[in-house]
């Protein structure tokens, strides 16, 4: 699939950890302003793939591009600029336990936007307010349930007003209500035109939100296309994944 306006793309991406080959020749393009879901069985390298997009991992072979930037050759200093525009939200909330929720959000704003601590705190509070999280402002992350921690993590990312947001399994491990709340925020971002890349095997979220789906299997892209094609594919691997069958290649 060739995106009309690719915001990010990988070309022949390969990555191994020791003898374990995780990705082998992955080529894909992400369209601007669209919501793309990356799905696949656990351990197929979904997180590894997207970590390359923000320069957290360097590929063994291949290229990674974000618009006109060749990401895989950038140094840490140059990557900071990219990471202001393309924000990655980890699977685990990765909030700093010794800080309050406001301080967690403000820290990122302060460093990324280069504003004073008081101004950063003001922006952080405004972001929490926009997401209906003001009641959590003075709490510390360990005091919060998983769903609220993920929401705070999302608030921290959105405080940077990114043009592209990468969400790594945002609804995994959450109760249906918390998952729905996260999805509602993602839907709002989609309406605002933010380019979204979501790693998930939550089929309900894919149905609700995805414009495009990329399915990874056996170190490669197995499917890349629309949501209907994903759910109604004749490919036995996709069929097994979508219908959660025990028998099959997965």
């Amino acid at each position: 699939m060739t995106a009309a306006h690719p915001v990010a793309r990988t070309v022949g991406l390969a990555k191994a950890f020791g003898a374990h080959q995780v990705l082998a020749g992955v080529t894909l393009e992400l369209s601007e302003g669209r919501c793309t879901f990356v799905a696949g069985p656990s351990g197929t390298g979904k997180s590894v793939l997207v970590r390359h997009l923000v320069g957290l991992l360097k590929p063994d072979a291949g290229e990674v591009w974000y618009k006109d930037l060749r990401v895989d050759v950038l140094d840490e200093e140059a990557l900071l600029g990219l990471r202001r525009r393309c924000v990655y939200v980890f699977q685990h909330p990765t909030l700093f336990d010794s800080m309050t929720v406001t301080e967690n959000v403000a820290l990122v704003v302060k460093y990324h936007k280069g504003v004073k601590a008081a101004a950063a705190e003001g922006l952080a509070r405004a972001q929490l307010d926009r997401m209906g999280l003001s009641r959590l402002a003075e709490s510390r992350p360990p005091e919060l349930p998983a769903g609220e921690q993920k929401l705070v993590s999302l608030a921290r990312a959105l405080a940077l007003e990114p043009e592209t947001l990468i969400l790594d399994e945002p609804t995994t491990g959450l109760d249906p209500y918390a998952a729905f709340e996260i999805d509602a925020h993602v839907r709002r971002l989609k309406e605002l035109g933010v380019t979204l890349l979501v790693i998930s095997h939550d089929l309900q979220s894919i149905r609700r939100l995805a414009d495009e789906v990329v399915f990874l299997f056996d170190r490669k892209v197995r499917y890349e296309g629309g949501v209907d094609g994903f759910f109604h594919s004749a490919d036995p691997v996709l069929d097994q994944f979508v219908h959660a069958r025990v028998e099959g290649e997965i």
């Binding site: 957290l56 900071l80 990471r83 924000v87 699977q91 990765t94 820290l107 990122v108 460093y111």
Partner: peptide, 13 residues
């Protein structure tokens, strides 16, 4: 091990 250090790098911290 819980990705907080990577999260700092991503946050320009």
């Amino acid at each position: 091990v819980s990705d907080q250090v990577d999260a700092m790098k991503l946050s320009s911290v």
